[in-house]
Amino acid sequence: MREIMRLHLLLLAACLLSAPAFGEDRQFKNGEAVTIQPDKAYLMARTFEVKGKALSGTLRIMPILVRVLNEDELQQAEKARQDDPKEWKDKLESNITEMLAAEPYAQANGEVTLVTAVKPGTYVLAAVAYKGWALVETGLMNTSLCMGTVKFEAKAGTLTDLGEILVAFDDAPTTIPELANVVAGKSTPAPYTFAVAIRPAGANTTIPASLDSLPRVNADYRAMPAFPNFAGAMLSRLAPVPDVLDYDKDGEVVDLKLSPLSAEAKADASQTDAIPPGNQ
């Protein structure tokens, strides 16, 4: 039955979706030269192809990043929405970065390296989309990480390495260590969603030789509390990230860099009636 669902999703996407990358983002393809511009930030992420079922073929994963808005931008957005509730988003500068899986910087053995130039700022790993053979130019939203995820700074003139973005279908067991205890591993009422994890860049992370000489930092991930499901996809949350992100027994995000307590200790201290972020 899930194969039917997937086929329908792909058919639908082929019917409805044909949007290119948003805003002024630029995707670097096929190892092309990356010349650092001082007013741009550069992001690099590695994803892995996921084997679909039946006719869906191989799926490529697209991290969806959201640039955090400043107060002026938020007010501008609110005014635009009130003025034109239908078309307001088209009148604003996009703050979404979709790292396009169809245009990889490098690919080998199922690993896909994505490099994208973006506006500098604080970015949230907000969702994951995917691309299959039927999706001509863009991807299809799959999983919203609105119940907890990470954010990072993308500084101008610097290549920020996001490490590896790992996904597995929630309804099947996986051998990915970060997700093995996260996936439901069996049929769920939320079909066809991914469980998502990150493996931050470290000393053993391989860098394409052509990017090795660029000014580069590993993403300094911070925990991001829950936020409204603006992505509109099935909700989920990023798997815990050692020393960065965890969850207490009430599902609240624990910022392990801010408060390196265990999740259990944090849970004991958080029995309040405070309204969770996003509902305030």
């Binding site: 969806i64 959201v66 938020l74 957005a77 979404i96 299809l140 992505a231």
Partner: peptide
């Protein structure tokens, strides 16, 4: 806020009201 097969949005008012 969840939708069937949502398209990738071009703008998200992170920090704003749920819509």
């Amino acid at each position: 806020m969840a939708q069937l097969a949502p398209p990738i949005p071009r703008f998200i008012p992170l920090g704003g009201e749920p819509a």
